[in-house]
Design a protein around this nucleic acid. Structure first.
Lengths: 239, 239
DNA sequence: CGCTTTATTGACCCGAATCAAGTAGAGTGG
DNA sequence: CCACTCTACTTGATTCGGGTCAATAAAGCG
């Protein structure tokens, strides 16, 4: 079994054999959860952080009137609530968007690591900081891009993030999100999302049928989304 | 001179005398910058992180067509680009919204700290994680709240964040943001922002004239904004 | 094959952008 | 001190994006 967190980190820095060993030890306790499972509950105070090994998950927030907002899409290799180690109660929930394989890492173990493994712990900081950078980007995308551009941006981002963990290649990847989910990622209605998706398809820059996304013209798509990879920190250098 | 970062951290955990000493040493190199200064430049690769001691700053992102998006408001005590230590190039800029007093902390010093001061470094993780939580919240606010509710949410959030560093009390605080800035925080037009602000004022929950914000009815305002303090992690406990 | 979920389309209306103009202060210089 | 100017705020008119409601098509699935 390979460990997508290692792929994530190797893309960004070097790992010593000892660090590799520790990282592999983190995924010993594996667990499979079905679609729709609330992996992390809003308001809870977890004693562990959850590493996503296979499948997709959504970071969700619910409003009083029942509206839902998806503030992040998690892919394999994401430590979906690493911040729960440092913070108190969860301000959001995480839900399995597909069947998922996860590993729950006790906070005690992580805290020990923060004492004994400065470099690895700094890399976990990179994990959190990258997650934060993605959130920041989501704010700007949400605020100032057209619906088509938002979709295009999501496609570009997911392609690169999935490529890192070997789940995207050849300009194709799959995303277990129905149109309601996509609408909730962008704070819009399903009807309008559907129409925006059609407009985007009409540009010919990508195909998007059900879960299968195929990028036909990366350059055009990136142009449309004003996509700039900087925020993903895909740079292998000492951290 | 007091150090607002210490106020920020003391609100969330205990600090040892040694840690207090280190934190005070961080703010020795002070610098005053005038309004409008680009404190941190998008695309740059800083060799230091910038701690805001006095004044306000905006995290900004510019688009091709010239549109601006403000993805965060920074208040005294914020380590505005602590993440630049871990990441590569800046994906956003930070601009002084008022005259600011800042301290630039060399990354070398921070890296040393990450080795020698596990607890303090973990607290710096709390700083980053709180910033990230605020970004996540911004996503949901932007996605699913009405303009009035967004403004109300901003008022609630800033009141609490400023209170921590002694800059808000008695239901009043001031914010050096003109309406164009507010519009750019929410991705809307100035005209519409102006009208939304008037609608909000008409509820009687707050007064907002120029830079002065007075919250008249916290409960009503929080209700309107569906405000929940969880994400600010205002809890004093071992981290 | 029926049933449920998902995707798509149409009609209608409201929210929000844009364009354009006008008002109010604050600062500046004669 | 007053005219001038600049910036911020406010208002009106118009247009268009996007939400809501409602119905229909398609696609899974038991």
């Amino acid at each position: 079994m390979d460990n997508p967190l290692i792929s994530f980190l190797l893309k960004r820095d070097h790992l010593s054999p000892r660090e590799l060993g520790i990282l592999n030890a983190l995924v010993q306790r594996q667990e499979t959860v079905p679609v729709g499972t609330e992996i992390v509950a809003q308001g809870s105070q977890p004693d562990h952080s959850c590493l996503l090994l296979q499948g997709f998950a959504f970071r969700e927030h619910f409003f009083r009137k029942g509206a839902r907002m998806i503030s992040a899409v998690h892919v394999p290799g994401d430590f979906v609530d690493l911040h729960s180690l440092l913070l108190g109660h969860m301000d959001h929930s995480v839900t399995a968007a597909s069947s998922c394989l996860i590993s729950r890492v006790p906070h005690g173990e992580l805290r020990r690591l923060s004492h004994d493994e400065p470099h690895l712990w700094r890399l976990f900081g990179v994990v959190m900081a990258t997650d934060a950078a993605i959130s920041r980007k989501a704010v700007t995308v949400l605020g100032r891009l057209s619906p088509q551009a938002r979709l295009a941006h999501l496609a570009c981002e997911l392609y690169l993030r999935l490529e890192v963990v070997g789940l995207a290649s050849d300009h194709k990847f799959s995303l277990p999100a129905i149109q309601v989910d996509l609408a909730d990622m962008f704070g819009m209605s399903t009807v309008h999302l559907n129409r925006s998706l059609q407009t985007l398809r009409a540009t010919g820059a990508l195909e998007w049928q059900g879960q299968e996304v195929t990028i036909l013209h990366w350059d055009r798509l990136a142009e449309l989304a004003e996509f700039d990879t900087t925020y993903l920190n895909l740079e292998d250098k000492p951290r």
